[in-house]
Amino acid sequence: MRFSAVPAMFLACLVLAGCTSSSALDTIVPQQPSRETTSSVIPTSPVPSASVGVAQAQAAPPQEMLAWAGPVPEPEAFRPAARAAATPMPLERPVAAIVPATPAVLTTPGTRTRVYGHRFRDAKPINFGRASPRKMAVHGVDVSRWQGEIDWPKLRTQGANFAYIKATDGGDHLDPMFKKNWRKAKEAGLKRGAYHFFYWCRTAGEQADWFIRNVPREAGALPPVIDVEYNGESSCKRRLSRARVLEKMQVFMDKLEAHYGQRPIIYTAPDFYADNLSGELLNYPFWLRSVAAHPSKRYPGRKWVFWQYSGSGLSHGVEGKIDLNVFHGDENEWQNWLARRAS
């Protein structure tokens, strides 16, 4: 990029993307794609032709609409008049995590679910030594539109006992495969949850409202996930200060916890974690990406619930590669963990 193009590009970012810096510590710097980026960012197999975004939701047949929780008022900062005036976005302020006296989802513990042993292969296998995830009991996957059409019953018998399914990112993007994957995974008997890819150029409150609008509040679902990582493919090039990152995350997580009655899980990768999350948010469960070493080496001292140990998994039921994950515990601990989520 030549220097003369910078002012125009910067102005366009301010007006169109809402990338107004709200902290003196915020900086805008070029990003290199992280080697630890989840496969929800980069396609690894043929995908449906459907586009992502509001237009997709509007063009879909009525039964495919994803606005299950009802309309969410359009935030004032994103109404046309506000955009024309280029009004800066308001700062979010962390609010106390409030779980209703009567949880949003009332459930009763169900029967124990069958656990299938893993039969996955790996296009780029790693020798984890004595700490191999292969020795752990409960494996699962995470998926998005990039996995295309999935044979969920076959995927389950290959060892996918749980699945995290991409639902939303930012404040207006929907994964066009979310509703189908959500339904089919349940029919196949998998425990499943939804995740949101966080976009640093939109307010946290808007993103929480968008997730709540499109992800049903359903008995038996796993806790919602906030996916926070650096993404060199994103149109948002902001890198915020640690304090600002934590502030935005807290706003988002508080809204989800109040709505779903479950504390969200934080998914992250080593580079983002080192810059923003080490030593922070100790009362939150973590899902850690570590595809070259055990999490204890990449995230010293951090407790975790899920470990994403491969981004190059291969399995019957899916064309191309798929992310592989494992639960931190044996089969009994998995069943007890599920029971606590349902009580």
Rank of each mutant, 00 (worst) to 15 (best):
R121P: 02
R114M: 11
Y164P: 05
A342S: 15
G148Y: 07
Y230C: 05
V52Q: 13
G18V: 07
N127L: 00
C19R: 06
G313Q: 14
Q58D: 14
R341F: 08
F128G: 01
H316F: 10
K321Q: 14
L222Q: 00
P90F: 14
A59P: 09
K166A: 05
S235R: 09
D254P: 04
A101L: 12
C201R: 09
V305K: 06
C13P: 01
A131V: 03
A339V: 06
G171R: 05
V228H: 07
A185H: 01
V95A: 14
M1L: 09
Y273F: 15
T108Q: 13
A204F: 07
F197L: 01
A221D: 02
P75H: 08
P75Q: 06
Q31K: 15
K135Y: 03
I212E: 05
F78S: 12
F198G: 00
R239F: 09
S45Y: 06
V6H: 10
H196G: 02
A5D: 11
R134D: 11
P62Y: 08
Q63E: 15
Q31E: 12
P103R: 02
R238C: 10
R119Q: 15
A188L: 01
P33Q: 07
Y267T: 00
R93E: 14
A208V: 00
W152D: 05
R340I: 09
L155K: 04
K180E: 07
T102E: 13
K191S: 04
T168K: 03
E149P: 04
A221I: 05
P285Q: 14
W200K: 07
L174Q: 10
R112H: 12
P71Q: 01
E64I: 08
D330Y: 07
I226T: 03
N283H: 13
